[in-house]
Design a protein around this nucleic acid. Structure first.
Lengths: 125, 125
DNA sequence: CTAAAACCTCGAGCGCACTCTAAGTCAAGC
DNA sequence: GCTTGACTTAGAGTGCGCTCGAGGTTTTAG
């Protein structure tokens, strides 16, 4: 058995991704998985390394405020096959623009907060 | 009349801050204002330059995910007077740590997205 | 074989931050 | 003075993203 055949339970995936088991089931129901999660030996989910890699990437998309509907859109495209690669690329590029804007905005906010902190420190000392 | 005496209507403040008039009233009801908003000549709100400066700073706090409850906490402290300056400073410093973490996380996500984009571009070309 | 722990589905519930509506009041231009 | 548009309040409604609960099944350890 190669390492990539390793199967993980939902709680193991929860631990590795920082998501809750509830959230993992919710994401699956919401259609965010690239492929149906395999059921090992019965009804219990058995995640592959590939599943986990995708879940980690999708949390990167989510943590940069890509809505669940857009993640689903991406997953739907991916499931439709290689023909949709340009569409997926475009979706990512559009999102990238938004992430760069988020960065700039947060940096500006950090500067404002730092300035405010500097005023307090000047006054307190 | 000095420029700082300038009074702005709610729609003017909405325009200057990017918030809606609805949101400005909501924030006020939620106790986020540092001082009661003055009512010019009747029931209509008349914002001072100081009010607007605070609203802009509070949107910096909000856009870096400081919950409304925490903004209220800060505003409550500020209303209680100068004695609370150390508490306000601490609140800001705590939030600053979270903002720096947000920045790091978003930068990591951007790197992951860029990597994924680079794979698509390699394959597409 | 049994008990406990982990898993399952389905659907309801929740928290947050707005966002809107209704019904009315006020201000500015003609 | 009258109309039009901006403003007012109080409270209800919305959208998103989880999060939880009930009631049942499966796995695992002893």
């Amino acid at each position: 058995m190669t390492p990539t055949d390793e199967q993980l339970s939902i709680s193991e995936v929860a631990e590795r991704t920082g998501l809750s088991a509830h959230t993992l089931r919710y994401y699956e129901r919401a259609g965010l998985m690239l492929a149906p999660i395999h059921r090992a030996s019965s009804t219990h989910r058995a995640y592959s390394a590939r599943d986990v890699t995708w879940i980690i990437f999708l949390t990167r998309l989510r943590s940069t405020s890509l809505p669940i509907a857009s993640v689903k859109e991406y997953a739907d495209l991916a499931r439709r096959g290689e023909d949709t690669m340009p569409d997926r690329l475009e979706l990512l590029q559009r999102h990238r623009v938004s992430v760069v804007a988020q960065l700039a905005d947060i940096q500006a906010s950090l500067a404002a907060i730092d300035y405010k902190i500097s005023l307090y420190e000047r006054t307190t000392v």
